[in-house]
Design a protein around this nucleic acid. Structure first.
Length: 467
RNA sequence: GCGACCGUAGCUCAGUUGGUUAGAGCACCUGGUUGUGGUCCAGGGGGUCGGGGGUUCGAGUCCCCUCGGUCGCCCCA
């Protein structure tokens, strides 16, 4: 398949880590996108979009350093300067966007003076990462982003979590299948500082914590030793706070008053605020505190969270990035948001049998034909097919037709059923006398109606279609 | 970048210790059962067995290389 040249020309296959969306796959993609879009809009988010490639510097500025190696780079071959730069430095002036947050921050920073606070934006951009594909991870994928900008309170954190949770409900997933794991980088930083870790070593300690479960035995302790951190005390302290927070969460979930938590830590106060905001949204049962969640991105501040399902890769992740807009030349502006990819979400939906079949997708996407027309008579019926279909389409109806050469009713009805049309319109002998036969493909009822009444009849069907 | 497994029609696969013109089901197209919907019957298009090289009288079936896929590691926005 690599090179079957000769008589029929070279065959190509899509690049590694990309997908071809044939009609069925496209319908599934639209199904997910529709849920994302509908839920975001009803939660008061406005849709935005940005360019699919940005200046490389936009990503260099904010993300971690290691990220740069996973970018697909881009440049114009028409510019000798660019070509030379790429040859010399290996760095192109542009990069295909690997995430959306920098674009969003840039867009907000550009118009910050005129933007309302809070601003709530969502986007469904396509992203590119030059990673090796594996389960739940491709090189080209969609990611739903929802962000609340300009509200520093944990109420905003809860809002973005709530929109994600509501979307899961929309698709049939429950808190039994998913968990929102909450953490706060400031809390962990406070604790680290409290037990004597130097300010310069804190980000390194966070990285260690992030990888604790994945590191080989002993490596975590070794890393801690290098920054003068007592691993046992560190983890014990973290676990103690985590437990008291989760106890509080459990109590509130059961309708009991929140237990007092004695602390003068701003981060704890913030987490308690988050807890109360999540309770107000009625989504505590989806949540738990897990202070081992750190997130890899350098720009996160304060609240961070991941949403996980079983053993799959995290289905969504996000957090606060209170300094990013400022870094892009805007006014100091707090912001919080998350990204959710379509790849892992699709896997989770499939696992739980929650992806509708073709008929369900057609229904859900509002793509069912209003009518499926075929001719089952002589040549005069065949000749009437195209004009009739054309008339229906001009009238705004979704009309499909059979392309089969047969005039057997059973085959044509099968053809009609395969289109998931609401009804079949049969052009038969009656056509010469001004009538057509109709058949409701959902309940099987049939009528002979006047050709002149057809458009109205089909229109009415569309209105009364059953769910 | 590293590792494991896999690679026969669009899809799922069969293919005997290497032996004549490579098979099945599904899907697709056509026709029949002389006019009603995931039945039945018949026929058809479509693979040079991922690609290249080698061993052999002869390879889909053995060896090497290569490309691709899947799943891990690294990384994870």
């Amino acid at each position: 398949m690599a090179d079957s040249s000769s008589k029929r020309g070279k065959k190509f296959q899509g690049p590694k880590g990309t997908r071809d969306f044939y009609p069925r796959e496209m319908a599934r993609r639209r199904y997910i996108e529709q849920a994302w879009r509908n839920v975001a809009i009803r939660h008061g988010f406005d849709e935005i979009e940005g360019p699919t490639f940005e200046s490389s510097d936009l990503y260099a500025v904010k993300s971690g350093e290691g990220i740069l190696g996973e970018l697909f780079q881009a440049f114009s071959g028409k510019s000798p300067e660019d070509v030379e730069q790429v040859m010399k430095t290996g760095r192109a002036p542009y990069a295909l966007r690997p995430e959306f947050t920098p674009t969003l921050a840039r867009m907000f920073a550009d118009k910050a003076a005129s933007m309302p606070r809070p601003t709530k934006w969502f986007a469904i951009p396509i992203h590119y990462r030059a990673e090796r594909p594996q389960r739940g991870r491709l090189r080209e994928f969609l990611q739903w982003n929802a962000d609340v900008i300009g509200d520093e309170s944990p109420r905003a954190d809860a809002e973005v979590i709530a929109v994600a949770v509501d979307m899961f409900s929309e698709l049939g997933l429950s808190s039994k299948q998913l968990t929102v794991r909450l953490s706060n980088r400031d809390l962990v930083s406070e604790m680290l500082a409290g037990i004597g870790v130097a300010a310069d070593d804190i980000s390194r300690a966070l990285m260690l914590l992030d990888r604790r479960d994945r590191l080989p035995a002993g490596e975590f302790d070794k890393g801690c030793a290098e920054i003068n951190l007592d691993p046992v005390a560190f983890i014990a302290g973290l676990d103690a706070v985590q437990k008291s927070m989760n106890d509080a969460l459990a109590a509130m979930e059961n309708g009991k008053p929140r237990p007092e938590i004695e602390s003068d830590s701003p981060a704890i106060a913030n987490l308690i605020g988050l807890l109360e905001a999540l309770a107000a949204h009625g989504i505590l049962k989806w949540c738990e505190f897990d202070f081992s969640i750190v997130r890899g991105l350098a720009y996160y501040t304060g609240t961070v969270f991941e949403i996980t399902a079983g053993s799959e890769r995290a289905i969504a992740g996000g957090g606060r990035y209170d300094k990013l807009i400022e870094m892009f030349g805007g006014p100091p502006t707090p912001a919080v948001g998350f990204g959710m990819g379509d790849v892992v979400l699709s896997l989770v939906l499939e696992e739980h049998g929650l992806m509708p079949d073709d008929a369900g997708l057609a229904q859900s996407l509002n793509q069912r034909p209003d009518a499926f027309v075929f001719a089952a008579g002589g040549p005069e019926c065949d000749a009437a097919l195209v004009p009739l279909v054309a008339e229906m389409r001009r009238a705004g109806l979704h009309a499909r037709r059979s392309y089969k050469s047969t005039n057997k009713i059973d085959k044509l009805l099968k053809d009609a059923a395969a289109s998931f049309a609401r009804c079949a319109i049969i052009i038969d002998e009656g056509f010469s006398k001004g009538t057509v036969a109709t058949k409701d493909l959902d309940d099987g009822t049939q009528h002979i109606i006047k050709r002149s009444d057809l458009l109205a009849w089909v229109r009415e069907r569309r209105g009364v279609s059953k769910e």
